[in-house]
């Protein structure tokens, strides 16, 4: 088991109180698994991604543990996290387009970073060139400034940099959101290839694009308002989702060839609850057509069939 997250709670500290962005998140990630992390905006998926590598100053670790390759990941301890970062856990950020220092040539920046992380830049040079080639970039990009690259090129450069030290876990946060469809596909394919070649052991792919993760991910985890709602193989989530939220989420996606006569696409009425003062019990109950009295208690995440986890009283 690569990654084991147990009852993780991370709150944002604000002037009006704590925002319960992650409220008891539990899941496992196997070696070689690419997990798509899906959900609406504000459901805590980016917070989860960040929590695995670096809490920002407003984030507070309230409870729960993270284990990577059998070792504890001390996310609240900024100093103790440093050796793990990049070497063990790495990140392709949401803002890959602006993640590179604008006044340093890319090659120079990589050298600086390697030296700072105690890696001899010469020792990874050949590998760097190979990987650039793999994602379809010429070696010449190393002599260029970020401004001279297109968005897709910058994205791929960041991908190569982030995975250069072969981390165990890679968090890819909305890496395809800013790209056009054809580039999205290329990026997604490269990510799978990186996993297949062993550049990264396993990957959490944060996205709101369910159709994209369906094509590349092994499993999909759906989150809602800081809770894990359902986790299963990508096929199961898309074809036979069990949790009512997942079902409604999937039914809100258009299918190829569907016309309006066959029925208009249904959205999910209502909006997610505010997390400053979240409701008790199941957080989806106010929008859920199946809600009943028991939903005022929080449903546990249970394995309803091998590899298929869901948190709903109706599915259990």
């Amino acid at each position: 088991m690569t990654l084991r997250v147990n009852d993780l709670k991370v709150y944002y500290q604000t002037l009006r109180g704590d925002v319960h962005a992650l409220d008891g998140v539990t899941f496992d990630l196997a070696d070689g698994e690419i997990m798509g992390l899906a959900g609406e905006s504000g459901c805590g998926k980016t917070t989860l991604g960040k929590s695995l590598i670096r809490l920002d100053s407003r984030m507070k670790h309230v409870g729960g543990t993270i284990e990577l390759d059998g070792k504890n990941v001390p996310i609240a301890d900024e100093k103790a996290m440093v050796p793990l970062r990049y070497h063990e856990i790495s990140l392709i950020p949401q803002y890959a387009m602006s993640a590179l220092n604008p006044t340093r040539k890319i090659g120079r920046m990589i050298k600086d970073l390697m030296k700072a992380r105690g890696v001899d830049p010469a020792s990874i040079e050949d590998e760097l060139h190979r990987r650039l080639e793999l994602v379809g970039l010429e070696q010449d990009v190393l002599n260029r400034f970020p401004i001279e690259l297109s968005g897709g090129m910058k994205q791929r450069v960041v991908m190569v940099i982030s995975t250069l030290l072969n981390p165990s876990l890679l968090i890819a946060d909305e890496v395809t959101s800013a790209l056009d469809v054809s580039t999205q596909r290329a990026v997604a394919e490269s990510m799978v290839e990186f996993r297949d070649r062993g550049f990264v052991k396993s990957m959490v792919f944060v996205t709101h694009d369910l159709s994209l993760v369906y094509q590349m991910a092994d499993t999909i985890m759906v989150m809602y308002a800081g809770h894990v709602v359902e986790k299963a193989s990508a096929k199961t989530i898309v074809n036979e989702p069990k949790h009512p939220y997942t079902q409604m989420l999937i039914s809100a996606l258009p299918e190829v060839g569907s016309t309006e006569e066959q029925g208009r696409l249904e959205g999910i009425p209502g909006k997610p609850p505010g997390l400053l003062d979240p409701p008790t019990g199941c957080r989806f109950k106010d929008r859920c057509p199946l809600a009943f009295s028991k939903c005022s208690e929080r449903p546990p995440l249970v394995e309803i069939e091998p590899g298929h986890w869901a948190a709903c009283w109706k599915t259990g």
């Binding site: 950020p93 602006s98 993640a99 982030s162």
Partner: peptide, 25 residues
């Protein structure tokens, strides 16, 4: 607070390097 600083921090780059970059920019 810029993105490139956050990225370097996430990759565990030391304060010195980040500040050097920030200074230059």
């Amino acid at each position: 607070e810029a993105d490139y600083s956050n990225y370097l921090q996430a990759l565990g780059a030391p304060r010195r390097l980040i500040r050097r970059y920030a200074f230059r920019n």
